[in-house]
């Protein structure tokens, strides 16, 4: 099966000599929900910029559904919808005009453009605002407008560059649900995000990019399996002034009611509960530390930094 996006040996050196991409290769399969992660300045936006034709590459190849961006750029672009990080629509135009104009750029006639615009604006809760000038919209609405605009030509791949940056939790959740819907309907989704929780909840596959290189490209599941330890937070009673002795477990007291324990893969939890029980410490509630991926991400990026320094 042809990959939805295929990147080979992509390099980018900016005019000031900054080497943003040092030969990255990447494949995103059709129907995937893919995350591109990396610290600020790692090369995520440059990669997506090149794929979206907003940045000129220095060398390498990009194919979208088998269409080369160099040789068949119109076919490749037809397959792509792009939601950039920053608002980039005309702030003086009406919502409806922004969406139908974008449809026109893809050769979609006015009638179909209006039908599609109505569909996506309704789906994204913007239909009531269709005649409003776009600068009057709230930040969240502007973001949804960019999604409606990117979808109006019904692309096979939707690229989102930090789509939920600065968006409140409720809206973020509703955007996640919407993106999951269109992914289930067959649209391949590629996103960059700083919220690792977002990648963990939405994406099946992931690439971590750092200093212009891919340092990891695997499935979220496989990535999480690499975690040897899981951090568990226990609310305990009675309060403990000193750290209870837990044989074989790395633990620390966050406060006198909260015990944080690192449990290795092969340790299991039964032993931990038995030890606590022996010491007459009751566990009132328990939860996983949510940022599992974050820990892994930080360790990968740190490792890459050390490798670069030693090289």
């Amino acid at each position: 099966m042809t990959a939805a996006l295929s990147i080979r040996n992509l390099c980018k050196t900016y005019g000031n000599g900054f080497e943003a991409l040092k030969g990255i290769s990447l494949e995103v399969q059709q129907g995937d929900f893919f995350a591109l992660l990396g610290p600020n300045g790692a090369g995520k936006s440059t990669t997506l910029g090149i794929v979206s034709s907003l940045v000129n590459k220095s060398s390498g190849d990009v194919e979208v559904f088998g269409h080369s961006l160099d040789k068949a750029h119109a076919q490749a672009k037809m397959c792509l919808g792009v939601v950039p990080q920053e608002f980039n629509f005309n702030q003086f135009e009406k919502v409806m005009d922004i969406v139908t104009t974008q449809a026109g750029y893809y050769g979609i006639g006015p009638r179909l453009a209006r039908e599609r615009a109505e569909f996506y604006l309704k789906k994204l809760g913007l239909w009531d605002k269709r005649n409003q000038v776009s600068r009057m919209l709230s930040g969240g609405m502007k973001r949804r407008l960019m999604i409606a605009r990117a979808l109006v030509h019904e692309p096979r791949v939707l690229i989102l560059d930090e789509p939920t940056a600065g968006v409140d939790i409720e809206l973020r959740r509703s955007m996640w649900a919407f993106l999951q819907d269109i992914n289930r309907a067959g649209t391949t989704i590629i996103l960059t995000t700083h919220y690792l929780e977002e990648a963990e909840s939405l994406c099946r596959n992931i690439a971590i990019i750092d200093h212009g290189r891919i340092v990891k490209n695997t499935s979220i599941k496989a990535l999480l399996q690499q975690l040897n330890t899981e951090t568990i937070i226990l609310d305990i009673d009675p309060p403990q002034g000193t750290l209870p002795a837990l044989n074989g477990y790395q633990a620390r007291l966050e406060d006198d009611h909260t015990l944080v324990v690192d449990v290795e893969k092969n340790q299991g939890l039964s032993g931990l509960f038995a030890e606590l029980s022996q010491q007459r410490i009751e566990v009132q509630s328990m939860r996983n530390k949510a940022n599992r991926l974050e820990e892994l991400f930080v360790s990968l990026v740190d490792k890459n930094l050390k490798d670069e320094k030693s090289a």
Binding site: P84, N88, N90
Partner: peptide, 12 residues
């Protein structure tokens, strides 16, 4: 306003 990007990403 960067809405030239609307044109650049399109196949025009």
């Amino acid at each position: 306003q960067r809405n030239v990007e609307e044109l650049l990403v399109s196949p025009i």
